[in-house]
Design a protein around this nucleic acid. Structure first.
Length: 445
RNA sequence: GCGGAUGUAGCUCAGUUGGUUAGAGCGUCUGUUUGUGGCACAGAAGGCCGUGGGUUCAAGUCCCAUCAUUCGCCCCA
């Protein structure tokens, strides 16, 4: 045999291996998400991980598609993209059955998504993202509900209100402010929007310099830069200039904030600097920010995008939705100490004493028929080694079976956490273990 | 794509101004006699010092390149 080549054991750049202890965390996170969104009546859907390139070139920028997606040509010369986001896909699905679906639709999915970029904290190449969308509601209740869903998810993880902040803004309001109130032209509006999006990440003086670079001399003489800066320091809707008070978007935002407050969601606020990068948002946008200093970034982002379904040549559908990434969520849970200690699903580890594997098979089958998850150590090692394995695996009980136990059908159940050991028949053991499992599910310990 | 930092045992890291056979802690494995884990003791395994080149009598140590990890920028789904 030729010399064995040494292959690297590291996973693909920007992607993660999920060892059992990692998968437990993922299952826990997804489990909580599912439970909460289903409580609001959302139904799960899914779609292929591959989509034709055209799906993304329509509304997403060309540059993003070319530089930040996994793009390849298949054997039939089709240009194919590994989905970088779920929104175009779900819009496609709704459009395909535009006429026959029962609106409003409440749909969710937890797809894995890929983007081609340098990995960094909170941003990997492969991640999973909870997508929650409501189709067919034109009024504010859709925004209210989706934000309430996002909030409920964090509450279900045990988060306190001080750990995150919900920020709201409106695309229509910003358009009104930049284009009409400040009289910026379209190019300037776009440039200033992008700049505002970044302003918290840059030096304030730098920001001012760049603002001035975008404005023309006449505008600077008119004090447009000062007006803009004053506006960006506005912390509440009431502080906006008088002429904007009656604007529809201001009223809507106020109504939404009131609705949220009445639902005890007290950490929501208007943030005039919230832009969000995506072009397809049409009205209210929102983000949920992690307030921990280690993760100064948004965990959820969403808003209203009424135009996407209509791109497929059907009657448009009003839509509000958000996405939440698993990586940022896990950072959040870890930083705030919200991740519980998760144990394997195995209820008991069977320790065999002596050469009794054959004789035990029937007994083990009985335990399994009763619904217990049983792993058997058939390694033939000494008892202490077997026990050690059970402890290391984090399994709660050891079930010791040797000739003595098989003889009188009383098996030794050892609680590895307390060290207590008792002998019982099958039924009694099953009920003890199930009780314990039930208590743990309720969070009692 | 751009910039910074870091690559020595499974993990966390030491390794003096270049100088012989490469170090610790933790972890792993074995044992301390017969069916009971966590502790203690005794012992063992485990390193092409990321990779390739260069300088030198001599390189883990200095230089160059490359790859990887990581933080930030760009961008943000």
């Amino acid at each position: 045999m030729p010399e064995v080549m040494s292959l690297p054991t590291t996973p693909y750049k920007g992607a993660r291996d999920f060892y059992p202890e990692d998968k437990r965390i993922q299952n826990y996170m997804f489990g909580v998400m599912r439970q909460v969104v289903e409580r609001f009546g959302y139904e799960e859907y899914d779609a292929p991980i591959l989509e034709p390139l055209e799906l993304y070139t329509a509304k997403t920028g060309e540059e993003i598609v070319n530089e930040q997606t996994y793009l390849f040509t298949d054997r039939g010369d089709r240009r194919v993209v590994i989905r970088p986001e779920m929104t175009p896909t779900v819009s496609r699905m709704v459009a395909a059955r535009r006429q026959e679906l029962a609106y409003p639709l409440r749909w969710y999915s937890i797809p894995n998504l890929w983007r081609y970029e340098r990995p960094q904290r909170g941003r990997l190449r492969e991640h999973w993202q909870l997508n929650v969308d409501i189709f067919g509601i034109e009024n504010l209740t859709a925004e209210h509900e989706t934000i309430a869903v996002a909030d409920s998810i964090l509450q279900a993880f045990g988060a306190k209100r001080s750990m995150y902040k919900i920020k709201l803004n409106s695309r229509k309001l910003m358009e009104e402010i930049l284009h009409h109130y400040l009289q910026l032209d379209e190019v300037q509006t776009h440039s200033i929007s992008k700049l505002i999006d970044r302003m918290h990440k840059m030096d304030y003086a730098d920001f001012l310099t760049q603002v001035d670079a975008i404005l023309v001399p006449l505008q600077r003489e008119d004090g447009v830069d000062k007006k803009l800066v004053d506006l960006l320091h506005v912390k509440s809707l009431d502080k906006l200039p008088e002429v904007l008070h009656d604007h529809e978007s201001v009223k809507e935002l106020k109504k939404l904030l009131k609705l949220l407050d009445e639902a005890d969601i007290t950490n929501a606020e208007f943030d005039i600097t919230l832009m969000r990068g995506f072009d397809y948002y049409t009205d209210i946008v929102f983000e949920v920010f992690d307030t921990h200093t280690e993760n100064n970034r948004s965990m959820f982002g969403g808003g209203r995008y009424d135009g996407l379904v209509g791109l497929f040549g059907v009657e448009p559908v009003a839509t509000v939705g958000f996405g939440m990434g698993d990586v940022t969520l896990q950072n959040f849970l870890e930083s705030h100490g919200l991740l519980p200690v998760l144990k394997p699903q195995t209820d008991a580890y069977v320790v065999l004493v002596g050469d009794v594997y054959k004789k035990s098979v029937g007994v083990l089958a009985k335990f399994r028929e009763h619904g217990l998850n049983i792993a058997v150590d058939s390694s033939g090692r000494k008892l202490d080694k077997q026990l050690k394995s059970a402890v290391k695996k984090g399994i709660r009980y050891a079930l010791i079976i040797g000739d003595l136990e098989l003889e009188d059908q009383q098996y030794s159940l050892k609680d590895l956490q307390t060290g207590d050991e008792e002998k019982h028949g099958i039924e009694r053991i099953v009920s003890i273990v199930k009780d314990r499992r039930h208590e743990e599910e309720l969070g009692v310990d």
